[in-house]
Amino acid sequence: MKKKELYLTLFRSTFFLSMFTFGGGYVIVPLMEKKFVNELGWIDEDEMLNLIAIGQSAPGPIAVNTSILIGYRMAGFTGAMVTVFGTILPPLAIMTGLAYIYLAVRDNALVNNVLLGMQAGVAAIIVNVVINMALRIIKQKKIVPVLVMIAALIAGIVFQVNILWLLFVSALIGLIMTLVDLKNKHDKGESK
């Protein structure tokens, strides 16, 4: 395939996926998988799962991360730039337009009433997200993650501890747990 065609297909695929997908990473990633694994056949299933795992290990939106990885896998750095541009362009254009409409209509009484109603809806959405995420942690049935979650909640809400500290300390705990885990596996391997 010619380079130019490859870039064009990468851009078009990520642009349309981002343009028409509501609901963030957990919705868009399966669609990317369908597009690049099943329809285009560019990436095999196992490799795609690895790319998704890498995308979730990095900071930032999962949809953006996964699209960068697909671009990088297909066409190196330039490919990654093409796919990240394809992914951020639709929300960038739509939200810029909305920002102007918002300024013009925010003080309108009806708009205000609609937004007031939506505010309760957004609160419900966030609470729902938190419940789902917390259940996923609790269902692992490990004591340390649950303790970290409770401690971070108290530190964040009651003591207003800076987010940076909370992330740093929990990352350190994760690192220590992983190293202990790796050492245990290593020791077991040796005793056999």
């Binding site: 938190v130 970290v148 401690a151 809400i157």
Partner: peptide, 8 residues
């Protein structure tokens, strides 16, 4: 787990 607490 800390991120869940922060979102909460």
């Amino acid at each position: 787990p800390a991120v869940v607490a922060l979102i909460a």
